[in-house]
Design a protein around this nucleic acid. Structure first.
Lengths: 342, 342
DNA sequence: GTTAGCACTCTCTCCCGAAGAGTGCTAACA
DNA sequence: TGTTAGCACTCTTCGGGAGAGAGTGCTAAC
């Protein structure tokens, strides 16, 4: 455990650095914070903290900056929770209070306002289909050639797409297919939907040709991979305001990651297991993100954890504030989605 | 008109600058290109071209760079059409040859490969609904509370969303609504779909309450603004490789524009009126894009111009190459979409 | 009309020195 | 023994030349 004085110094250093983005020295620290001790004493303590791995020195005779370990300690046991200002709460709420008919519009608005209020990059993972169970399937023929496939999950999400109907399959037969699905799959987790069911289907429709079999296979893969999960991204340009991203090379590295939606998707899914998750710098598996931190929260639909919202910024981000923003949005989103879907 | 020699010199300068991104001087020009004249003569000609507004000088005693007018002249009458390499054609085709069930997947793949091959930023505007006519409406009730609204256009695009059914409206009544729509609107341009029809609808269902009226109004606005047009963006990071974007401030300006999807949408719609459109530097209304050029082409679905693909790069972009890429993708996309939708 | 020569201009880079900030060590102090 | 003042030292940053390099425009000759 760190002594009270070391804790106070570490806290002051991290806070100061978060605010000003510049290495902080003993003299400045003594001047700016009322620690009641002289720069010399602070220097001694700083040397200790440096040896213990909480602080780093960009070079001899620059001030100290927090190491990853320093941020972690700060977040875990020094930082004070911050109450979101009423103005910010207002901004967040209002964005979701508009009448947003499509669920995607909700996510897109949420991501926009999240990045605006936080001034960092916002990420939103749409509901994970694997977490839901099959409720019903509808096959709505548009004409003799195309059919609209509607799949409804237990949480009320509707997945839809247009498919080509194999030639010679009648509307009655489509109905029959839907019936088999609805009878056999109701309540089954979409994750578990595997090929054994497909075999069963084949046998039911065995008299039929290869085209139909392909159609059925496509139908099922569409459920699991179909629309899939998407990631909404907002405020990418905010990151460019941060002094640590004054280097175009760094910017490019980060933006490249943000362009790989699959990667982000996996990242957010991994973090979905916790209510609030914080990854600081090196804790990110991805090397290119070692200068960044991510704070995520999982939103719920009807009490079930369904997806994740997150904010990405430099390791030097204002954790207390970001956490309060994310938490507020988490509640807001859970409520809004519940209202729309239930 | 410019003399043959001036044309040759201008062409050499623009080509060289496009390739190397550095002001080009008379001596270098004479060395690199076999123009058969001495640097001194070139200098005279360059001075003329400068006075005529085709060239600019970053400062005295640097070489010349093309002005906006210089690029324009180059594009209009100096540039030689470039044949896309078989390898590139292959890459573009293959991306769209995958089985892509959802139309959005086609656009997303197209935008990805477009940016990869061009090494600039790619933009794709999804089909403009206003250009299409109403074909049919389906209202598929999921349960007593929600209904899936399916609207099919004459080009085979399906727009869908989930809406809440006003309490007390039966399935039969929904059917009736759909029938009225299908009877009155078939063949009508979605753009023209206005409130006069809504009045008519009200009178048909006049016995009904306010909730139903709101439902009907929402239904119609959904057609025109509903899903709306989307812009797919790819290869944003490519722009960062360009030396002209070594300045973070410039990058931020551009990325900010690219984040405003509505703005991009309008931009691409404006350019949709031509088969191939090229906007160079200052020709862009948007001030922040004065250092950029956009090359667009409109793709067709069943012979009707429906949307736009484009490539955005620095004014110093390789126009010949970009044009050939865009043209190729235009044909590819028109074909692919025709196949999927028809 | 074209070219060679030349003086001149402007940028870029490298280097140097001064300023500033901060450290670590030592010695004195409570 | 912990704390503090003092001091020499280190390292970065910034500004000011000096020199190199590239290119221009003008003039005079071909």
């Amino acid at each position: 455990m760190l002594s009270g004085r070391k804790r106070a110094i570490l806290k002051a250093i991290v806070s100061d650095y978060i605010q000003r983005a510049e290495p902080v020295g003993s003299r400045t620290l003594a001047r700016r914070y009322n620690l009641g001790i002289s720069p010399a004493t602070i220097r001694n303590e700083m040397a200790d903290l440096g040896e213990m791995g909480y602080l780093e020195q960009p070079h001899t005779s620059a001030g100290r900056i927090p190491s990853y370990k320093g941020y972690r300690y700060f977040v875990d046991s020094l930082m004070e929770a911050e109450q979101l200002s009423p103005a910010d709460e207002e901004r967040l709420s209002r964005a979701l209070q508009q009448r947003l008919s499509k669920i995607d519009a909700v996510f897109s608005e949420a991501s926009r306002v999240l990045s605006e209020v936080s001034q960092y990059v916002s990420l939103i993972l749409t509901p994970i289909f694997g977490q839901q169970t099959f409720q019903q399937l509808r096959l709505v023929p548009l004409d003799s050639q195309f059919v609209v496939v509607l799949m409804v999950t237990d949480t009320g999400l509707v997945q839809n797409r247009v498919m080509e109907v194999p030639p010679g399959v009648s509307a009655a037969e489509l109905d029959q297919i839907a019936q088999v699905f609805n009878k056999h799959l109701k309540g089954m987790s979409l994750e578990d939907l595997n090929s054994s069911f497909l075999q069963e289907l084949y046998s039911v429709f065995s008299r039929r040709n290869r085209a139909l079999q392909e159609f059925l296979a496509d139908l099922i893969t569409g459920f699991t991979f179909g629309e899939g999960e998407k990631v909404f991204l907002g405020g990418t340009t905010n990151i460019l305001k941060q002094p640590e991203f004054n280097d175009v090379e760094k910017v490019r590295n980060l933006l490249q990651i943000l362009e790989e939606r699959d990667h982000l998707c996996r990242l957010l899914m991994d973090m979905a297991s916790e209510d609030i998750a914080i990854k600081i710098g090196e804790e990110n598996e991805c090397l290119q993100m070692k200068d960044c931190s991510i704070v995520t929260a999982s939103y719920e639909i009807n009490g079930r954890r369904m997806g994740t919202i997150g904010i990405l910024g430099p390791t030097r981000m204002d954790y207390a504030r970001v956490i309060s923003v994310v938490e507020y949005m988490q509640k807001l989103l859970s409520k809004t989605l519940g209202d729309i879907l239930l």
